[in-house]
């Protein structure tokens, strides 16, 4: 394949992982931005979402893969959201949302969820069948003696499911933006994020807000996982990569900045995918981590936040 079509293919493949990364990172950014909790267990919510999606589709093998997947897409994030809510009530709330203690507490949650998944579903990687998977060839342009001509390079294609992952993620991200910017509950969340003491003085029950934000963060990670699990397999150790990449994205975007998180997800997701395709996935992670280190040294508030007001 020529370089042009090869780059386009790499970009499309990267866009799929970028979309899922954006969903996962937005969940982490919400939790940090509003609750000031560094949730080390966020990757495990992603893992639980994927494993539960496998389990749900496995229970529904009598129906078509589309039915099983649709049920998993709704049920898995709800279940993970409920688990996250319970984690907040039972653990995070009990340590008074203290930044240092919540890090230790969520490290504990990480191991608990990992081991529960291992003991319940076993160590094997589990596949989920995509609901639809038509391969779509992509045209390319070339210059001929007669001018521009369209042709179909061999290997330049993407599946309909991968395009759907990008589309669904965009719809979900728009949904998150609409909830935050246009609803009464979004207003309460933004007020709590900006000044929790004054929010309380105006009757906002911040512990209830925190519980729901933690649940929403977990559900968003699970949503990303359900979308990616027909492409990657579900496995009890799969939470590490999304956690690392989400942290990189949230730090680059500016802790708590949702728009910054989206821009950073696009930068990291696309560059990560391109470097992984043309060089190696390990090099992609090394460079992303190096970038975070440089940002923490030179611009600790993140690339996309105002440094002072």
């Amino acid at each position: 394949m020529e370089l042009g079509p090869h780059i386009l293919l790499a970009l499309l493949e990267s866009a799929v992982s970028t979309a899922v990364l954006a969903l996962t990172a937005i969940g982490l950014a919400l939790v940090f931005g509003i609750m000031r909790v560094v949730n080390v267990a966020h990757g495990e919510f992603f893992m639980l979402g994927a494993v539960l999606a496998w389990w749900i589709t496995d229970q529904l093998t009598a129906f078509s893969p589309a039915v099983g997947f649709a049920v998993a897409l709704v049920l898995s994030p709800l279940l993970v959201g409920a688990i996250a809510y319970a984690s907040d009530r039972i653990v995070i709330n009990r340590v008074d949302y203290d930044p240092e203690r919540t890090i230790v507490a969520t490290v504990g949650l990480l191991y608990i969820f990992q081991q529960i998944s291992l003991m319940t579903f076993g160590p094997d990687a589990r596949p989920v069948e995509p609901p639809f998977n038509t391969r779509l060839a992509i045209p390319w342009l070339e210059i001929t003696e007669q001018g521009w001509a369209v042709y179909w390079p061999w290997g330049l294609s993407i599946t309909s499911y991968k395009l759907a992952v990008i589309a669904i993620s965009i719809v979900l991200l728009i949904g998150v933006w609409l909830v935050l910017s246009k609803t009464r509950y979004g207003l309460i969340m933004r007020a709590t994020q900006q000044d929790k003491d004054i929010a309380q003085a105006f009757g906002i029950r911040i512990e209830r807000v925190y519980g729901l934000v933690f649940a929403a963060g977990g559900a968003l990670a699970a949503m990303g996982a359900v979308l990616i699990v027909p492409i990657q397999q579900a496995h009890y150790l799969m939470g590490g990569d999304p956690l690392l990449l989400s942290f990189i994205v949230v730090i680059l975007g500016g802790l708590g900045s949702l728009s910054g998180t989206l821009v950073a997800a696009a930068i990291i997701g696309l560059s990560n995918g391109m470097i992984a395709v043309f060089f190696s996935p390990t090099l992609a992670k090394i460079l992303a981590t190096l970038l975070v280190a440089l940002v923490l040294i030179w611009r600790p508030a993140g690339l996309f936040t105002r440094s002072s007001r």
Partner: peptide, 26 residues
């Protein structure tokens, strides 16, 4: 109701949204 020292408005909310937070309280 309380107006703290230094005002402490919600800085990234509009004036309308700040007032809505007050209206919501009761």
């Amino acid at each position: 109701a309380y107006t703290p020292q230094g005002r402490r408005l919600f800085p990234e909310l509009t004036v309308r949204e700040n007032l809505e937070i007050g209206l919501m309280a009761r």
